[in-house]
Amino acid sequence: MLKANNLRKTFSPGTVNEKFALNGVSLQLAERDFITVIGGNGAGKSTLLNAIAGVFPIDSGDIFIDSKDVTKYPEHKRSQFIGRVFQDPIMGTASSMTIEENLAMAHRRGKPRGLGWGITNDERALFIDHLKILGLGLENRLTSKTGLLSGGQRQALTLLMATILKPRLLLLDEHTAALDPKTAQTVLDLTERIISENQLTVIMVTHNMKDALKTGNRIAMMHEGDIILDIGSDEKKSLHVSDLLEMFEKASGDQISSDRMLLS
């Protein structure tokens, strides 16, 4: 379904700040794969997601979605395949626009926009149905600005926005990292539910190793811009966090570099 071959990306090439963010990383996803991606700070996890989403052009390599070469597609054109949720809750919605306006824009993801009404009555009814599923009472606040929502509410809404048109690929970039533990759990539960109900193909970046083990059918570990471990569902089920740490050290020849990852 997704095929990313030998992706390379260097930021600020030729300067003292030169950073090899992606070092020939390859990743293939089958239909309905749900892969979690872990790794230390600066391992290239977010860069990988952004490269797939087309936020910046890559230096070399190619990306196929449904065997269509999208390597040269700009970000807005790739959006027809891809739904995204970001780490920062502020990033996911237009804060001075209302809940229904945000959902209406998401409902037109990747489609040409014209001079028709930005939202229709049919859509409103649809949004109410979907918002009820979130169980946050947002269905009664359609005309509230999203800037008034809490971080957890916004992430839940962003998740709904990313999936209201079923995406071919869902990219979650540490979307629970900025939330308190309880809210993070709620959003994660919701994430799993939406993914299984819609049978989505997903890449989820996380700092939380427990979450990474618990959710999804595959787990990948990144180090210095490459995937150094990719574990399938059979082996993954029997793994513990301590096993993961051990495997990481063996594969990278390095201590785990992120304190956040150890602490969580």
């Binding site: 989403a53 700009p74 970000e75 807005h76 054109k77 959006s79 027809q80 891809i82 995204r84 970001f86 502020i90 990033m91 996911g92 919605t93 237009a94 804060s95 001075s96 626009m97 306006e101 209406a104 824009m105 998401a106 037109r108 993801r109 990747g110 489609k111 926009r113 014209g114 001079l115 028709g116 009404w117 930005g118 939202i119 926005m161």
Partner: peptide, 28 residues
């Protein structure tokens, strides 16, 4: 009227959260 059309929404979102509306398929 214009700011309640699809393009109008996209324009308002461009000034509000450019990354988000680009991720939703708008050429900002």
């Amino acid at each position: 009227w214009f700011f309640n059309t699809e393009i109008g929404y996209a324009m308002r979102a461009t000034g509000n959260n450019e990354n988000m509306i680009r991720a939703l398929g708008v050429n900002t």
